[in-house]
């Protein structure tokens, strides 16, 4: 078995560390510095002066949101053709690949010979979905995407967690 030979600093405490007191002051110096610097930054920013640093790293969540990565997998949506029909051709690829088994598709027939099939029902149970993104990768028609940026998916009942085709199409 491969192993790494990690060299650690000696675990024996030095004389200075064993007296303990200098180390205590070192620790207290760090917290006090944070306290004084952050408090000063808060005070200065409260007066409306712009500073390069903020006093806290906090994002005040409902009002302030962190920027999302464009690659982040968020809630699904179904894309549309130019005429407003879903791009989905009900090929069942996503339903097949889904590891959580949360997609349910019922296919219907279209007279258009170029499309032939369309989804009559397309349900995603977001209470079961694991947000792996396999459905997006499996789709040959670019019909399903996970780029809505919606992260807050919650409801009072399990039934409401099942998103039907209308909600998925409307973005």
């Amino acid at each position: 078995m491969a192993y790494y030979n990690v060299s650690r600093p000696s675990e024996k405490l030095t004389w200075r560390e064993r007296i303990y007191l200098p180390e205590l002051f070192k620790g207290l110096r760090i917290t006090t510095r944070h306290f004084v610097v952050n408090l000063a930054l808060h005070a200065v920013r409260l007066l409306g002066i712009k500073t390069r640093r903020r006093g806290a790293v906090t994002f005040q969540y409902p009002e302030e949101r962190r920027p999302l990565s464009p690659r982040l997998r968020t809630r699904h949506r179904l894309t549309k053709r130019e005429d407003g029909m879903p791009r989905c051709v009900a090929c069942m690829m996503c339903e097949t690949v889904c590891p959580a088994d949360c997609i349910y598709i019922v296919a219907g027939e279209l007279p258009d010979p170029n499309v032939e099939k369309y989804p009559v029902r397309f349900d995603i149970d977001l209470g079961v979905c694991v947000f792996c993104g396999f459905c997006v990768e499996a789709c040959p028609e670019d019909a399903i995407r996970m780029d809505t940026g919606i992260l807050e998916i919650a409801s009072d009942s399990r039934e409401e967690m099942i998103y039907s085709i209308d909600r998925l199409l409307s973005g």
């Binding site: 917290t31 944070h34 306290f35 952050n38 408090l39 006093g55 806290a56 906090t58």
Partner: peptide, 10 residues
């Protein structure tokens, strides 16, 4: 508040 300021929080 003091713990928050020490730990760079609000």
């Amino acid at each position: 508040k003091q713990s928050a300021v020490i730990q760079d929080r609000i």
